[in-house]
Design a protein around this nucleic acid. Structure first.
Lengths: 146, 146
DNA sequence: CTCAGTGCAAAGGATTTGCATGCCG
DNA sequence: CGGCATGCAAATCCTTTGCACTGAG
């Protein structure tokens, strides 16, 4: 979570770099995502951001994703979730509830990240894969569902 | 990869436990998945298994998933992929190409798994989450796309 | 005036469901 | 005979696209 002015300041240049502007609709999306402590679905975003059009939300999320300020998170649910790019927040992993589908953020630590780098290295060695990042989700039951 | 007779022997009891039978269609799906070295899409499955109906494939995969013998893998593509449950193969992680979407299997090791258990423990501590397993994907470019 | 952003409605694509048929116990 | 698996087609659901409108430069 980060203050709006600060966030917009960080984001605007990236949008300009991809030939896009920071419009009110996009600002709204960013603010909503910045306030969330877990990745949001389109439905959740629209519920919070009254007056946002469905199609514009989708379109703007694509723009923001291409500008590298938003990331689409895949879950086993049949719809997508979105969060701010990790360099605008903190690198983190996820807790995914296999019962209700909720996703919580989980901070990472140096130990885990070090191991991730080792896994990345072995992936390169094994199959010429060029790692750009990783995705680590713990799957289980959230406190409500257990 | 495991021999058919062996596989069917392991699977049949689990299906019975959920009140389901090991039908020819399900056998075909299992054999196809057992031969693959990475999670398959429905399209890929139908391409290999000539004569399988689309809807039956989906329905049977649901049955097999509930019986715990097949797992649905989510990727950033807009369709699902399926693989045999990990206890029928080997526990492994994935290499996901962010360019072409291909998913390769990546063996894991004791070190990584130990760290995963630690992450699981801290998740429990932080938010009452009950971990059942984890999902670790390296995201990057495969040897073809890089 | 021009062009990108917006919103509504229609289209798309993966997945699911309804229903009639066929098979196994 | 009864119930479940199957296949086709129709229906759903999330997401994307077509198009006309609006506001900023």
């Amino acid at each position: 979570m980060r203050m709006s002015a600060d966030l917009h300041w960080a984001v605007a240049p990236r949008l300009r770099a991809t030939g896009q502007r920071l419009t009110p609709g996009r600002r709204a999306l960013l603010d909503i995502l910045a306030r969330a402590s877990h990745p949001l679905t389109i439905a959740e975003i629209l519920r919070v951001g009254q007056g946002l059009a469905l199609s514009s939300a989708y379109r703007n999320l694509v723009v923001l994703e291409q500008a590298g300020v938003v990331r689409k998170v895949v879950t086993e649910e049949d719809f997508g979730r979105y969060e701010l790019a990790e360099d605008l927040t903190e690198h983190h992993h996820h807790l995914v509830c296999s019962s209700c589908g909720i996703v919580e953020d989980l901070p990472t630590d140096a130990r885990v990240e070090r191991v991730m780098r080792e896994v990345a290295a072995s992936a390169t060695e094994l199959s010429g894969f060029t790692p750009k990042g990783h995705r680590l989700d713990m799957v289980g039951l959230c406190s409500n569902c257990s």
